[in-house]
């Protein structure tokens, strides 16, 4: 999937894989920790996979504000809109 064209779909599919749910089960307000059961390690896994898909080295500071499914989608959308 091309990240730049469909950032939201890409985010949801990676997130669903890491959280072991189907993309349809994800709601924008779901919290990564409390609702999807991600801990520090699986959160890092998610962000590392997103970084690989975006071909970017994501820094911790950028990543730590992502708390919900919607945060993750908005984050990726923002990264995709920045001229590379």
């Amino acid at each position: 999937m091309n990240a730049l064209e469909k950032p939201r779909e890409l985010t949801l599919s990676i997130l669903a894989e890491v959280a072991e749910v189907t993309p349809d089960d994800l709601e924008p307000h779901h919290r990564l920790r409390e609702d999807l059961g991600l801990d520090s390690l699986t959160s890092l896994e998610l962000l590392s996979r997103l970084g690989e898909a975006l071909k970017m080295d994501l820094e911790f500071e950028q990543a730590m504000d992502i708390r919900t499914v919607d945060d993750a989608c908005l984050f990726v959308e923002r990264q995709c809109s920045v001229p590379q």
Partner: peptide, 11 residues
């Protein structure tokens, strides 16, 4: 470690 590997530290 955070600067060097970013979130890729997980690997």
């Amino acid at each position: 470690a955070r600067r060097r590997w970013g979130v890729g530290a997980v690997n």
